[in-house]
Design a protein around this nucleic acid. Structure first.
Lengths: 255, 255
DNA sequence: CTTGACTCTAACGTAACGTCACACCCGACC
DNA sequence: GGTCGGGTGTGACGTTACGTTAGAGTCAAG
């Protein structure tokens, strides 16, 4: 018979009373964290004991505890609250370490931008490099350091328009040669020399390694691994018979 | 004609090279952050310049920048990087403040649990109260302090089984009385006296306020706002004619 | 031709709600 | 009694940065 006795609050009223949003109450209701009574029409009705529970939830949320754990704590695991606090402290301390390092990096990055200094840690240098890369047009030179930088410059020079044209010419030539020899034995000497020329072109001029990488493995010079745009560029050389011939030549060599 | 020249990496290889997961690469691809070339079969093919870009991404991610902003920075907003760093620093400092207060609360909460001390801040006391509420069976007494606590205790005593029975008896009596007077005028004196008795019962014994709330407003003692369980408890009193009579009496009074 | 290793996309799950969209409910006014 | 306005309900998508299957296709090798 205590039904009508206690004061009841509808959702918005209760939300304002407790300092949370209506959506939050809906959310907690669905999660089973705080399930008020209902009117026949489905309206939520909160009462004083719901406010108690909600204040417990808010207090525990202040510790950045996830709602799941809060529910567990309030529902049954009350005795493990000390343990939960300890674990939560460790989680938060880990987060703080990450946060602090990011903050330190930002601060040093900011001041380094202003003063042109060199930061000490590797990650900071990378960040500054990124920054400078972005702000300077000739960042490629800055990106690589020492040996690697020299190599890139060298490669840059090597890959001149003239060389590109030369490369293109060599491909055309190779294609013509192969097309003219399609009836030869793919395992034969002539075919194998075509394959050599082919692989050298694939290897190309930029075959040097980038200093930024650690342990590079070579990848397929195989047609299957070519990007689609490359294939489009290769359209002038799209004679299937030539490709098939080279495939056979490669297969023959492997055996 | 540079298509086949550079070394290409498939997804897993490239991921290991860069120290990220395959899923991360897929993700960045979909976000447009790092879109490698593709083979005809749809396989991703990464090359050295993709590694450069990925390293930029990772470096900026170290600053806890969201990927969206990283994309904007790398795509076009390069010149605003200093501003982005400043804003990001503010965001992180705010986060750190929250984190530190939570950590302080946890630490003080832990030591307070151990030593039985009283923490100073209000929020900490609330947390400790939650902790104690959970670990002690008679937490209701602890929850309210001073005056409020006394009131709760009082209410607890008042709401004895005997009183519950008495309340139930009064409801039954009121229902009988109304049923016997259904043909009276709902606006008449007799009906209004029924309404008075009704509202007093609704007001109940627990009408006192809880000290935890701030500015309580009374809510509907109206049938519409009653919870469903209450209605089920009211089943013995579910004579619709009685309810309708009281509704009319209430309506009459309002006019 | 089948493995086995690798890849692809699609789609759900995560934390804690914010933000619609659409439908009811309810007291009040005409 | 119809309607208006304000409150309320339930979906359901969006957010962050991926993890984790699941189902299907690719490719080289036995």
């Amino acid at each position: 018979m205590d039904a009508g006795a206690a004061r009841m609050y509808r959702t918005r009223e209760f939300a304002e009373l407790a300092g949370v949003t209506v959506r939050t109450l809906h959310h907690y209701d669905r999660l089973g964290l705080l399930q008020p009574r209902r009117t026949e029409a489905g309206y939520r009705l909160y009462q004083a004991r719901d406010l108690e529970r909600l204040e417990q939830i808010v207090a525990l949320k202040f510790l950045a505890l996830p709602l799941k754990r809060i529910k567990a704590l309030l529902d049954r695991d009350a005795l493990d609250l000390a343990g939960a606090l300890r674990r939560q402290r460790q989680v938060l301390e880990q987060k703080r370490r990450l946060l602090n390092s990011a903050l330190a990096a930002i601060r040093e990055g900011e001041s380094a931008i202003g003063a042109g200094r060199r930061p000490e840690s590797a990650i900071l240098r990378r960040i500054i490099e990124v920054i400078e890369m972005q702000s300077k047009p000739d960042w490629t030179a800055k990106y690589y350091t020492g040996e690697a930088g020299a190599k890139v410059e060298e490669r840059k020079e090597l890959w001149s328009p003239e060389l590109q044209a030369e490369c293109s010419r060599q491909w055309s030539e190779l294609f013509r040669d192969i097309e003219a020899a399609l009836d030869e034995d793919p395992a034969g000497e002539k075919a194998q020399s075509f394959l050599d020329r082919w692989q050298k072109l694939v290897e190309g001029f930029t075959g040097g390694d980038f200093a930024i990488t650690q342990g590079l493995k070579n990848l397929y010079a195989d047609r299957a691994n070519w990007p689609v745009e490359a294939k489009q560029q290769m359209a002038p050389y799209s004679n299937k018979a030539v490709w098939s011939f080279i495939d056979k030549a490669r297969a023959a060599r492997k055996k």
